[in-house]
Design a protein around this nucleic acid. Sequence first.
DNA 1: GTCTATAATTCGATAGAC
DNA 2: GTCTATCGAATTATAGAC
Lengths: 195, 195
Amino acid sequence: MARKQGSHSDITGPKVREAALRLIARHGYAAVSMRQLAAEVGVQAGALYNYTPDKQALLFDMMRDHLVDVIESFDRADPKTDAQSRLRAFVSFHIRYHLPRADAVFVAYMELRNLSPENFAAIEKLRRAYEDRLEAILRQGEAEGAFAMKDARITTRAIIGMLTGFFTWYRQEGRLPLEEVEAIYWDLVCKAVAR
Amino acid sequence: MARKQGSHSDITGPKVREAALRLIARHGYAAVSMRQLAAEVGVQAGALYNYTPDKQALLFDMMRDHLVDVIESFDRADPKTDAQSRLRAFVSFHIRYHLPRADAVFVAYMELRNLSPENFAAIEKLRRAYEDRLEAILRQGEAEGAFAMKDARITTRAIIGMLTGFFTWYRQEGRLPLEEVEAIYWDLVCKAVAR
DNA sequence: GTCTATAATTCGATAGAC
DNA sequence: GTCTATCGAATTATAGAC
């Protein structure tokens, strides 16, 4: 006999996040209503407001938590040795970390327009912090004489764009195993910044 | 004395497209109401339905027209000679064509989720047709011995991703003139596919 | 072709019972 | 913590006057 009411804070809380991420990734923040989200979670619309003060905070919290986790995870994965090793670790980390989190990546990338100005500024700061990790590696490589490029900042954006585009199509083409895709991207990045 | 009513089909038609592109690029399709759009154009909401059967068709028509124009324009710009020259022309065309059309690029890229299934299929076909142009150039370069890469299809997506990421940040950083940005991207692409 | 007015829904968010 | 019920406002799209 299923209860119609009761306390499920520990269960419902994560379910709200997961459902919101899935629905917003698929349909977009503005297109997903609180009623749709509630139905996906299996509660009534009013109950959602036990877990978020409003719809905007729900979006912001998901994006912030994702980006904070990306940065902390990379800092742990970074070998902090020579630039070549660090760049390889970055490419591998970026692909492998983001792949199983496609919904979060998609939301963090596509929903910037729907953040309030203050929330947008906070998210942009985090995004920039992640990009700065890559830029620092490229500049170290230039200093070591391992890399050569015309402009480290633009090369940073180019590499991130190249790697992030990956997640917009990988789900469709199951043609190649992850190891090969990773090798292909490493080959491109490695040659692009080579002396 | 401004008229409050009257026929302005030739004026209002283009204004609807321009305003829709601008508003949707900034706020997203789902977040822009027909009333907002009408206010931007300078008419009442009901008048918009003289120019589109519904909101969905307005989005689809803009995306389709943009992509058809991209493909036709590239086919005219393509030197159709050696792969190296063609690749350089592609990079230059892609940057220069898309730069002054940032709103259309943004909409065509970000609003795929808001297309009906049939409209999505049609737009994906066009997108694929453009990507196939680049893939053909890369395969020609392999055949000529000018390029070497592990996988032409994935390299195609990687290059497009890299070039398209360009438009998400160029407006912010006016630091460098277009010629230099183009040279930086050409350097990266050229080295990435070099033998 | 544009207007005003409105039908029919749907939205985010809240109040109060349990 | 979840429910039901609801407020007030916004939505797409249409009807009919001019």
